[in-house]
Design a protein around this nucleic acid. Structure first.
Lengths: 221, 221
DNA sequence: TAAGAGGTACCACTAAAGAGGTATTTTTGG
DNA sequence: CCAAAAATACCTCTTTAGTGGTACCTCTTA
């Protein structure tokens, strides 16, 4: 790791990846108003971006999501696979839940919306350079919904299950084979199979693997 | 569903569940400054709370997390199991990640911190009464981390897997049996079994069910 | 060039899972 | 109190899954 940054140490190096030259220009001008931040490279697509990241190893990468050919999420994955250790801040207009979730799951260290105030962007970038995760506050409710999203979705319904069946689903999702489930519940393996058979019918699933996956996604932990 | 609320319709009915009488008193006084909101019942523990909720069917329930005996999360689950349809807003001092995530997963419709400004609380409650999910903005970064948290955790390591094995894991997690995986990859079922065998060894798992669960939790979608 | 890793394939064998049936007991609801 | 649902048990049978071993081919690297 590098040493602690004091008041006026080296500015944080930044790579911009965005397919709009004008936007890059604007952001660059804004950033260079802050002596703690410095744009050291720009790229207009994923390939250039990865190459520039590998060459300069910047402290921060400001990454647009909406790019032709290879989008921002894919670019982010490429960066990670190439071993780029820079902190990647997604900087986009999209406040779409899927984009936000996908970006964070792909390892983004921040998600800022382009409509934010310039001063706020600068302060957020400074925070990010210090290792803090920065997220536009507009996204709070969105993130909360993503966490609980499992509900209100299509697919099988848990309400049709008996308590015993729910109990068995949890054990299946824990990876236990029927034999161990039987021991844990003090019933025979044959009976466990009966319950499994029934809940497969009810949930319209084809195997215990599907049951396990469904249960995990449903948050039945 | 009830009819659309116009400007000065009936105020939203609120149930307070909190073990501190003084806090309830304070919140109640605050809320009744707003003609759109009305506290119609109070409870000091989970049992009273559930009973009151069933009796009054309030529009909103303000629920404290930190209560003796039965905590707020459990209370929330009890409410949901009893079929209470009210919107439940967790109102607490805890900005702990696990609490927030647990509450939202348990079906909370909001999560507000007790240190917020009184006027802000009122406006948030009004929003909540209109069906909006309300979350204290302080929690944004917390939620973002919860989404990506899968990483940096103990357990088996994906890095030891070959591309082919990762490919097969995804298909297992999709619930496919070996035969279908074989077709999809244009290889024989026997070969699929070989790969499954190898990845079970590498990940120290005992069955494809465990693989599927692990993959889903790891976010390999 | 030799060694190793990865992918492919086949075989035989055991274990586990799932489908179908019948039947008893307990619980629950009308 | 009766009927339905739930839980239990046992049975057979077929399909899937998992283990062990051998083998061949390609590609990369020491």
């Amino acid at each position: 790791m590098s040493e602690q940054q004091s008041e006026h140490s080296n500015p944080a190096s930044i790579l911009l990846i965005d397919d709009h030259p004008l936007l890059r220009k604007g952001v660059k001008q804004l950033i260079e108003l802050d002596s703690e931040l410095q744009v050291i490279a720009e790229a207009s697509n994923a390939h250039e971006g990865v190459a520039a990241a590998l060459e300069h190893e910047p402290d921060l990468i400001l990454l647009d999501l909406n790019m032709p050919e290879i989008n921002g999420i894919e670019t982010l994955k490429m960066l990670r696979e190439e071993g780029v250790a820079s902190r990647v801040i997604v900087f986009t207009v999209s406040d779409n839940e899927e984009d936000v979730v996908a970006a964070l799951k792909a390892g983004a260290d921040g998600y800022l919306l382009k409509d934010m105030e310039p001063e706020e962007l600068l302060s957020n970038l400074n925070q990010a350079a210090l290792g803090k995760m920065v997220i536009s506050e507009k996204l709070t409710a969105l993130l909360a919904q993503a966490l609980q999203s499992k509900r209100t979705k299509k697919g099988p319904d848990i309400s049709s299950l008996t308590p015993r069946e729910r109990q068995i689903i949890k054990l299946i999702a824990a990876g236990l084979p029927n034999k161990l489930i039987a021991r844990k519940l003090s019933i025979t393996e044959g009976t466990v199979k009966v319950h499994v058979k029934h809940l497969l019918k009810k949930l319209h699933l084809r195997s215990r693997v599907e049951v396990a996956v469904w249960a995990v996604q449903e948050g039945l932990n």
